[in-house]
């Protein structure tokens, strides 16, 4: 059964005099205990989807569509009720942990906050819970980490702390927004291992957002490829890497170092005035005449969804 369903999500940022169409009609489902990877170039709208699920976008964002979780449309829920779901049912691992953590509070304070806010735990008990959790995540010296302040930690440590915080309340869904961004190989492996661990702890579903295709391959069951605010292809991860269908997916895979490092020609399209027709057509090696005229719809081929005229 689908745990979370996103239907025709459209997000527009009003930045006068322009309108930035960050997400342009995205439909997604997330199944129980499934990890869905959302991949694409930086700025294609992946993070915007993450933030719109929890309704954390700034006020100038106009969000339309439906986000159904447990028969409720999260976009229509009163702020107070949504606040009760945030962190408890759906938790978020933010990108940029250096700025996400509050500089003047200790790690212990920030880790125990969800327990105190949602479960009304007493402080010593909450600290103990946090400490146990850090131990499970193989932190060296959890007691020291609890007492430390963000400025005393390395970037990788802070990222791991965010992962720890995301799981203190055993959420149903964990959204990890670019969790491996800016980390070196060793730390990246560590973070991926940790994410797998927290996912297993409560059999949570996970939305893994990344521009790192290999990380997505390692961790996800299903993968959705985003381009300029749209999903172009969505498939089981194994099959996708065996045979990507959409020309953009193919180009993306070929740009990986181990597959020849071939860059995708052209530049990312404008989010203010996207190209007519298929948004990828100006860069597409297989484009047909109709690609610039008509935007293709999703078609189900070979057990996956693709948005390309080649498969209609």
């Amino acid at each position: 059964m689908d745990l979370l369903v996103i239907e025709n999500l459209k997000v527009t940022f009003q930045t006068p005099p322009e309108q930035v169409r960050a997400v342009d009609g995205v439909t997604l489902e997330l199944k129980q205990a499934e990890t869905l990877a959302l991949v694409g170039e930086t700025g294609c709208g992946k993070s915007t989807i993450a933030l719109s699920i929890l309704r954390l976008l700034p006020e100038n964002a106009d969000v339309r569509g439906k986000i159904i979780y447990r028969n409720n449309d999260l976009l229509l829920l009163p702020e107070k009720e949504l606040a009760q779901l945030r962190g408890k049912d759906i938790s978020l691992v933010m990108q940029n942990p250096a700025l996400a953590l509050n500089p003047v509070y200790s790690i212990g304070h920030q880790m125990t906050e969800p327990l105190i806010v949602h479960r009304r735990l007493k402080k010593p008990k909450a600290i103990q819970t946090a400490k146990n959790l850090l131990e499970k995540l193989h932190f060296k010296g959890p007691s020291n980490a609890i007492r430390a302040y963000p400025f005393e930690m390395s970037g990788g440590m802070k990222q791991r702390v965010l992962i720890g915080i995301s799981v203190v309340l055993s959420p149903k869904i964990i959204i990890a927004d670019e969790p491996t961004k800016g980390l070196d190989d060793r730390l990246r492996e560590m973070v991926l291992k940790e994410l797998r661990l927290v996912r297993e702890m409560n059999r949570s579903s996970m939305i893994f957002i990344s521009h790192d295709l290999n990380a997505a391959r390692e961790i996800s069951d299903r993968i959705a490829v985003m381009y300029a605010g749209e999903i172009l292809e969505s498939a089981a991860t194994q099959e996708f890497f065996k045979e990507p269908l959409h020309p953009y997916s193919q180009a993306l895979l070929e740009s990986l170092p181990e597959r020849g490092f071939k860059p995708i020609p052209g530049v990312s399209p404008s989010m203010i005035q996207p190209p007519r027709g298929c948004k990828f057509h100006p860069r597409c090696p297989d484009k047909k005449e109709m690609c610039s005229k008509q935007r293709p719809d999703f078609k189900r081929t070979k057990n996956r969804d693709v948005k390309c005229v080649l498969y209609s």
Binding site: Q84, A100, E113, V117
Partner: peptide
């Protein structure tokens, strides 16, 4: 406007408690 405020909301904090706790 800082990011830690968004993160506090993501953790489920609501209304004035964001002001006073963060």
């Amino acid at each position: 406007e800082k990011l830690y405020v968004v993160y506090a909301r993501a953790k489920g904090l609501y209304g004035n408690s964001i002001l006073f706790r963060h």
